[in-house]
Design a protein around this nucleic acid. Structure first.
Length: 783
DNA sequence: CTACCAGTCCTTTTT
DNA sequence: GGACTGGTAG
C-alpha cells in the first residue's frame, strides 16, 4: 500500500486527512493545491473511508479534470473514468442525460455554445422584429446568462420597469424557443440540473445519499448558481472540501463570486480554515513582491506565502520610451536567457490584453525566435468544423434550428435569404421548427427546401448502423462540405480540419471505451447496463451504494445514457479543444495574464505595466475593479519561478492611436528593495493626495500632475492631461456616472478643455457616445 | 448570390 | 490597427 502522506507538509497533511467536517482550504499559488485534492481522494479510498463511487470532484476546466483523473489513477489502481470527476457543466450534462425525462428534455438534447446562443438570440429577435440598435443581441445574451447564473427564471424577475420588461420578455421567449428546439445553453445546463434536484426530492435524496465527499477546485471562481448546486447535491452527511484562493479570484467579470468563500465559511461553520502558505515555486524576492502587493487589498481571508528557496534574484524593472522599444528589449533579454541555457518554453511573456501581443510578436519574428500564442480560435469553434457538427446535430435532432439555419444553404444550394425568412415565418405561425415547417412552403423555394430535408433524411437513414467515425466521415462527404473546400482556393486547411474531425471522433470512441464498431446512434450495451438506462436499477454493479430511491438511474453504474453521437456532440460543445496555435513546440510562451493562471515558468515578463492598461482603465468603472486588477497582478507575479521582469512604456500605440501612459501604480506597491531598475527610476512626484485606495480610484487615471516621465516624452502630448485636469476641476472625472435630462444615464469617458470650454465625452446607456460642453449641458453627477 | 466597402468595436474567458 | 458586420451594388 503506497504511503500517500509521507511527502506532505503539516498543513497539507492536515488538509488531506481532515475528517467529518466541512473544510475550506486557502491554497496559495504554488502551494501544492492540486496535489492535496488528489492525495485526499486517494487517501479516502485507500483508508476505506470512501469508494470511487461516493466521491464527487468538481473543477472548472476540462484540463483540470483530466489532470485530476490521470494523477489519481497514477496513485491508485482504479478506473477513474466512471468516477464523478469533471467540470460543473460536464457533470450537469451527465446528470441531465440520465434523467432527461425528469428534466423535461429530449434524450438527444444538444448544447449551444456561446456563439450558437448568440445566433439563436439574433434569429429570435429578427423574427420578432426587435430593434437590434435598441436591444443589442449581445446585451440580451448577457442578461439571460446573468439571470440564469443568479438562479432566476423570467417569472422570478421584476419586469415592472419598462426597459427591463423587454429583456425579461425576450428571456422568456428565448427559453421557449430553446425548449421547442431541444437545445440548452451553458448556463441552462447548470440551472436545469439545479432545478431537477431542487424539484425532485427522491432524486435529490438519491444523490445526496450517494456522494459522501465533494471536493471543489478553484472555489473562488464559483458563481452563485454553482455554489447553490453544490449545497443542494451535498446535503447533510456530505463533507464539502472547498479549495481556493481569494487572492487569485480574477473572473468576477463572468460571474465568479469570491464572496462564496466567506459564505461557505459561515454557512458551514468551518472550524479550521487551513492555509497552505508554503510555496514550492518561486524564489523569495518574487514572493515578497507578491505578498506586499496583495496586502493592499481589503477583505482578504489573509495569507502570506513563504519559501525555503532563498531570496534569489531581484525583480528586474525596465522603462522604455515606446511599446516597440519594450518589445525589442524583451527580445534581447530572451536571447540572453536562451544563450545561458533557459529553455524557450520556460519563458513566458504576459500581457493584460490581447491587443498587446502584436508588437511583441513582430519583434520575435524579426529576431527569429520561435514563439507560441495562447488564445484564439479553438478546434471545435472553426467554421468548417461547426458546419459539419451542424449536420450531425440535424441528424440527431431535426428541430435544432440553430444548426438548421447554419447549413441549410451551406454549401449553397439555391436557398436564399428570402426563402429562409419565409420558412422562419411559417415555423413561427405553426409554432414548429424550421425543418417541420418545410411542407408549408410552396413553389420553387419549397422544392429546394424539400430537397434539403431529403438530404438530411437520407443521411439519417444511411448512418443508422454506422460507427461514429464513419458517420462523421459520411456526413463530411455527403453534405458537400469536402467538395466545397476542395474547390476553394484557401480551403486546404479547412479540409484538413474536417479530416481531423473524423480523427477526433475515432479518438473519442476509443477514449470513452466504446467499441469501434458501436453504432453512433444507439445506446451501447455494456455489462451492467440495460437497454432502458433511465429505468435501470443498479444493484449488482461494483461499488454499489445503497439506493434509497429504487428506479433511479445511476449514471456512474450506467455511464451509457448517451449515444456515442450525442456524447461526441456534447464533447464538442463542452470542450472546444486546444486553443494553442502550435502545440508542443519548444517555443517562448505568449499569453494574457488570465490565461497564465495555474501555469509556471522559469522566467516571466509582465509587460505594459501602465496606468490604464494594467490596471485596466475599464476596471475603474466597476466596484472592486482595482482590487481585481491587483489580484491579476498577483497571479502574474506568482507565475515566475526564478526570474521576473516588469516593464512599461511611456507611449504605446493602441487601436491605431498613440497613448501616453504613466507607469502602473503597482510599482509603488511593491517592496522597493526587491526591485532592480535596469533603467533609472524616475520619481513620479506628488500625486493627487497620493491615494491608492478605492476612494481615490478613477480620479487619476491618466493624469498625475508632476509626473514628468523620461526626457524623451514629447511635451506636446502632455496638455491632454492638463486639459483633463482642468475639466476635472469642474467637478467631473473620467469614469464618473452622470445623468442628463435628455439622454439619461451615462459614464464620462473623456474630459477636455477647461473653464467655459470644458467638454466631456459621455457614453450614454441608450444614446451612445457624445461630446457635451459642460457650460451648456446640464450634467448631474450620480453617486 | 457574391463582392466589396464603410462603419463599428476593441479587457479579461471557460463551459 | 484589424477583425468583423451589415448594407448595397452588380
Amino acid at each position: 500500500m503506497p504511503d500517500l502522506l509521507s511527502n506532505l507538509n503539516p498543513e497539507q497533511h492536515a488538509a488531506v486527512t481532515l475528517l467529518n467536517e466541512p473544510a475550506l482550504i486557502l491554497a496559495g499559488a504554488g502551494s501544492g493545491k492540486t496535489r492535496v485534492i488528489i492525495t485526499r481522494i486517494a487517501w479516502l479510498i485507500q483508508q476505506g473511508l470512501a469508494s470511487p463511487a461516493t466521491v464527487l470532484a468538481v473543477t472548472f476546466t476540462n484540463k483540470a479534470a483530466r489532470e485530476m483523473m490521470s494523477r489519481l489513477s497514477a496513485l491508485l489502481p482504479i478506473d477513474t473514468r466512471g468516477m464523478w470527476i469533471g467540470t460543473f457543466h460536464g457533470l450537469c450534462n451527465r446528470m441531465l442525460r440520465a434523467h432527461h425525462r425528469d428534466a423535461g428534455l429530449p434524450a438527444t438534447f444538444q448544447i449551444l455554445d456561446t456563439a450558437d446562443q448568440l445566433s439563436a438570440i439574433k434569429r429570435l429577435m429578427k423574427g420578432l422584429n426587435i430593434d437590434d440598435e435598441k436591444y443589442p443581441a449581445k446585451n440580451i445574451q448577457y442578461f439571460i446568462n446573468n439571470a440564469k447564473e443568479q438562479g432566476l427564471r423570467p417569472e422570478d424577475m421584476d419586469a415592472t420597469e419598462n426597459f427591463n420588461r423587454k429583456f425579461v420578455e425576450l428571456y422568456e421567449v428565448y427559453d421557449q424557443q430553446c425548449q421547442r428546439e431541444g437545445v440548452v445553453d451553458f448556463s441552462e445546463l447548470l440551472l436545469r440540473c439545479y432545478e431537477l434536484l431542487a424539484h425532485n426530492p427522491p432524486l435529490r435524496a438519491h444523490y445526496q445519499a450517494r456522494f459522501c465527499h465533494t471536493l471543489v477546485d478553484e472555489f473562488q471562481d464559483t458563481n452563485k448558481l454553482q455554489y447553490a448546486w453544490l449545497k443542494l447535491i451535498a446535503g447533510q452527511n456530505n463533507t464539502i472540501f472547498a479549495v481556493g484562493d481569494d487572492d487569485q479570484s480574477i473572473y468576477a467579470f463572468r460571474g465568479a463570486n469570491v464572496g462564496n468563500m466567506r459564505d461557505f465559511e459561515h454557512e458551514f461553520s468551518v472550524r479550521n480554515l487551513i492555509k497552505l502558505e508554503q510555496n514550492y515555486r518561486s524564489h523569495g524576492h518574487i514572493l515578497d513582491a507578491a505578498n506586499q502587493l496583495i496586502a493592499n487589498n481589503s477583505r482578504r481571508l489573509g495569507k502570506n506565502l513563504r519559501t525555503d528557496a532563498g531570496h534569489g534574484e531581484p525583480v528586474r524593472v525596465y522603462e522604455s520610451t515606446t511599446d516597440s522599444q519594450e518589445a525589442g528589449w524583451i527580445v534581447e533579454e530572451i536571447k540572453a536567457l536562451i544563450s545561458t541555457g533557459t529553455s524557450r518554453s520556460e519563458i513566458a511573456i504576459l500581457y493584460r490584453s490581447n491587443a498587446q501581443s502584436r508588437t511583441i510578436e513582430h519583434a520575435l519574428v524579426n529576431a527569429g525566435i520561435v514563439y507560441r500564442v495562447y488564445g484564439g480560435l479553438r478546434f471545435f469553434e472553426r467554421q468548417e468544423v461547426k458546419h459539419a457538427l451542424a449536420y450531425l446535430r440535424l441528424i440527431d435532432n431535426p428541430n435544432d434550428d440553430t444548426a438548421f439555419a447554419r447549413v441549410v444553404n451551406f454549401p449553397t444550394r439555391g436557398i436564399g435569404a428570402r426563402s429562409i425568412e419565409q420558412l422562419a415565418d411559417a415555423a413561427r405561425l405553426y409554432n414548429c421548427s424550421m425543418a417541420a415547417a418545410i411542407p408549408y412552403i410552396a413553389g420553387k423555394a419549397g422544392s429546394s427546401l424539400a430537397a434539403f430535408a431529403n438530404l438530411i433524411g437520407k443521411m439519417r437513414a444511411e448512418t443508422q448502423q454506422m460507427s461514429l467515425p464513419e458517420t462523421v466521415e459520411y456526413v463530411v462527404r455527403t453534405s458537400g462540405l469536402s467538395e466545397f473546400y476542395q474547390n476553394e482556393r484557401e480551403g486546404q486547411d479547412r479540409l484538413e480540419n474536417l479530416q481531423e474531425l473524423v480523427n477526433a471522433a475515432a479518438a473519442f470512441v476509443s477514449e470513452e471505451g466504446y467499441g469501434m464498431d458501436t453504432p453512433a446512434r444507439s445506446i451501447p450495451l455494456r455489462p451492467g447496463a440495460t437497454s432502458t438506462p433511465e429505468l435501470a436499477v443498479a444493484t449488482d454493479a461494483p461499488n454499489t451504494v445503497v439506493l434509497d430511491a429504487p428506479g433511479i438511474a445511476d449514471p456512474t453504474q450506467n455511464p451509457d445514457t448517451m449515444t456515442p453521437l450525442a456524447g461526441f456532440l456534447s464533447h464538442a460543445s463542452l470542450e472546444a479543444g486546444d486553443n494553442q496555435a502550435q502545440a508542443g513546440q519548444e517555443a517562448v510562451q505568449l499569453m494574457t495574464v488570465h490565461a497564465a493562471k495555474g501555469l509556471e515558468f522559469t522566467a516571466v515578463f509582465i509587460t505594459g505595466l501602465e496606468e490604464g492598461l494594467f490596471p485596466h482603465e475599464n476596471s475603474a468603472m466597476e466596484s472592486d475593479g482595482l482590487e481585481e486588477e491587483r489580484r491579476l497582478m498577483y497571479v502574474a507575479i506568482t507565475r515566475a519561478k526564478e526570474r521576473l521582469y516588469l516593464s512599461f512604456a511611456q507611449s504605446r500605440i493602441l487601436h491605431g492611436q498613440t497613448r501616453y501612459n504613466i507607469r502602473s501604480r503597482f510599482f509603488d506597491e511593491l517592496p522597493q528593495e526587491t526591485l532592480k531598475w535596469l533603467t533609472p527610476k524616475v520619481e513620479a512626484g506628488a500625486r493627487w493626495g497620493g491615494r491608492s485606495d478605492n476612494a481615490g480610484y478613477g480620479r487619476d487615471w491618466f493624469a498625475r500632475p508632476g509626473y514628468t516621465g523620461a526626457a524623451s516624452t514629447t511635451p506636446a502630448q502632455l496638455p491632454a492631461f492638463a486639459n483633463e485636469q482642468r475639466a476635472a476641476e469642474a467637478g467631473f472625472r473620467v469614469g464618473q456616472q452622470v445623468f442628463h435630462t435628455k439622454f439619461g444615464e451615462g459614464t464620462i469617458t473623456a474630459l477636455e478643455g477647461g473653464g467655459t470650454d470644458a467638454k466631456a465625452q459621455v457614453k450614454f446607456k441608450r444614446h451612445g457616445e457624445k461630446w457635451l460642453a459642460l457650460a451648456v449641458a446640464k450634467l448631474q453627477a450620480v453617486e
